[in-house]
């Protein structure tokens, strides 16, 4: 694999090209990288604004989101409580059919908010199975783990509706932000034809700038790392304009995206 000499050589070539030496590297790094523990006044102010938001601020962001979502074909549906979401999903399942197979099934994250919807019960009378795309890997050997992965993957391929939550939602760009976590399979929001996401209104942020400020400068949000190994931003369902610049929705991935925002 990679020998360190190629990297060393590569970086050395850069330094020669730049006409600078290695000695200055430390000082230059200190200068160009900003420190998560030492926010600039601007960044600190952003974090403070976010933290000080009340109900009405979140509602205002929700309104903003609803406006921005329209041209992106994202359906934003404010709801009072979780029960309304379960009911709405049951309705959705009733009114729609699978794109690829004949049998209806739904797949979801193992996530407190999603679990609380109790979709199994909600879809019982329609006889539609609900899979949870997660498994506990503790103590698993490689083979069992790989089998479990295959099973979950199959469920995500077969299901035509995927239900997730999200970490945040950015009003200005109608963007769902999803950090990867072990119980929150990435493909639940990718392989099914319909993606349903559920969040609480307090998860609303204004824009990318706020998201980054929070991820970087808010110790509570930062967790161990600024970012996990993977994060996705989704602004509306898939679209393409590659044929004669005509906008078509649903090139790959979900063709429809419903976002339920619980306002409490």
């Amino acid at each position: 694999m990679q020998t360190n000499t190629t990297e060393t050589q590569f970086i050395k070539t850069l330094r020669t090209a730049l006409g600078i030496g290695q000695e200055s590297a430390g000082a230059r790094a200190a200068k160009i990288f900003t420190d998560p523990k030492d926010p600039s006044p601007e960044q600190a102010a952003i974090v403070k604004t976010i933290k000080s938001r009340r109900d009405k601020d979140h509602m205002a962001l929700l309104h903003h989101l609803s406006r921005e979502a329209v041209p992106l074909n994202l359906n934003v549906i404010p709801v009072k409580d979780k029960a309304q979401v379960s009911k709405a999903i049951a309705n959705l399942v009733k009114e729609t059919g699978p794109e690829w197979g004949a049998k209806k099934s739904v797949v979801q994250w193992d996530h407190p908010l999603v679990n609380a919807l109790d979709l199994k019960t909600a879809l019982k009378d329609q006889n539609v199975p609900v899979h949870t795309a997660a498994f506990d890997t503790t103590g698993m050997d490689d083979l069992t783990r790989s089998k479990a992965r295959d099973r979950v993957r199959r469920q995500m391929i077969d299901s035509y509706i995927g239900v997730t939550s999200a970490d945040f939602c950015l009003a200005d760009t109608a963007t769902l932000v999803m950090k990867s976590r072990p119980k929150e399979a990435r493909a639940v929001s990718l392989l099914p034809s319909i993606h349903v996401a559920v969040i609480g209104k307090e998860q609303m942020l204004t824009n990318l700038k706020e998201l980054y400020a929070l991820l970087k400068y808010d110790p509570e949000t930062r967790e161990a790392e600024l970012l996990p190994h993977h994060m996705t931003l989704i602004s509306g369902p898939s679209k393409t304009a590659d044929i004669e610049l005509v906008m078509v929705h649903g090139a790959h991935g979900p063709r429809k995206l419903y976002l339920y925002v619980i306002t409490g």
Binding site: P228, H230, L233, I234, G236
Partner: peptide, 14 residues
């Protein structure tokens, strides 16, 4: 304002 689908990738899925 923002690309439709953005992935941040920093390593493999453990």
């Amino acid at each position: 304002k923002l690309g439709g689908c953005v992935s941040y990738i920093g390593g493999p899925a453990g």
